[in-house]
């Protein structure tokens, strides 16, 4: 049992008023640990909403520095933060927003040999990365460590997300098998993205994390939600866990993590696996 202070009862009153959340749900939030991988377009709104919600421990993993071209959508970073480490910039905003939150700033990109140690101990993981190598790596690591996570992807005016509960629901690899061929992936500078689309998708991921922690509602599992902001068409496609999935199937062929080769799409940040648009 957490003894709520007067200030906490006030700060979280709109959660406590929700009968599906209440004091018990808020206690769960304050005791929860969520890791956000990527402090960018998706990670920014996720971090702000989870901090505001009082998620007790927020891990943020990202090895990049803030670039001027990030500010069009990465709303946790301000003009004064240009050239600062993204995790330092994000941690500062989170602490200013809610001192109840303990921040673990992890100033590195995730790789095959480090990711399992990084994610271990967290209750839920947010994929806020911008490349397929990292998305598949996060999926496989979360399946192996049995940690639920939210997949998110955005490009131009569109977004997609699904929540994965390993062992129970379809994983990212059940749907997308393997990264697409590099020459088929449009370069990030060609693709572009509407800033608010990152906010729309990231906010859905944050809501899923809050639902998971408070055990509220029905998670976006076994369904891929896609939307097109140009028309505001939203669609959910029902999916199933695939028995032949290479990582979560009956006879998994992936037993060790590997770093996939990744198309680099920003010359300023062309240091290996990770790249920013």
């Amino acid at each position: 049992m957490i003894d709520f202070t007067e200030a906490q009862l006030d700060r979280y009153s709109r959660h406590i008023l929700l009968k599906d959340v209440g004091i018990e749900g808020q206690e769960r939030l304050l005791s929860a640990k969520v890791l956000i991988i990527g402090a960018g377009g998706l990670g920014a709104p996720v971090a702000l909403y989870l901090a505001a919600a009082g998620v007790g421990t927020l891990g943020i993993a990202d090895g990049d520095n803030v670039d001027l071209s990030n500010l069009q959508r990465q709303i946790i970073h301000f003009t004064k933060d240009i050239s600062r480490a993204k995790v330092v910039s994000a941690a500062e905003k989170i602490r200013a927003l809610n001192p109840d939150v303990k921040v673990n700033a992890i100033q590195e990109h995730v790789f095959a040999d480090t990711i399992r140690d990084i994610i271990r101990g967290y209750d839920f993981v947010i994929d806020g990365t911008d490349n397929f190598a990292a998305k598949f790596l996060i999926n496989d690591a979360c399946v192996m460590e049995d940690i639920p996570f939210s997949h998110g992807g955005i490009v131009r005016f569109t977004g997609q997300t699904m929540t994965i509960v390993p062992g129970q629901s379809a994983c990212y690899r059940c749907v997308f098998t393997a990264p697409p061929p590099k020459n088929a992936v449009p370069t990030c500078s060609q693709a572009g993205v509407l800033g608010a689309v990152a906010g729309m998708l990231g906010t859905i991921q944050a809501a899923e994390a809050l639902k998971f922690i408070t055990k509220t509602g029905t998670l976006l599992t076994d369904r891929l939600l896609t939307f097109d902001a140009l028309t505001m068409d939203f669609r959910k496609v029902t999916l199933h866990k695939q028995s032949h999935c290479a990582v979560c199937g009956e006879n998994p062929t992936i037993s060790a993590l590997v770093d996939e080769e990744q198309a680099v799409c920003d010359f300023k940040n062309s240091k290996g696996l990770h790249a920013t648009h």
Binding site: G38, G40, G41, L42, G43, D64, N70, Q74, D127, G128, T129, D130, N131, F132, K135, G152, G153, I154, V155, T158, G159, Q160, V175, F176, P180, V185, C188, A191, V193, A198, L224, T226, V237, A275, T276, H277
Partner: peptide
Amino acid sequence: IDFLYYMGGGQ
């Protein structure tokens, strides 16, 4: 039949 597109962005 459903077509599900890869979406790689996020940053």
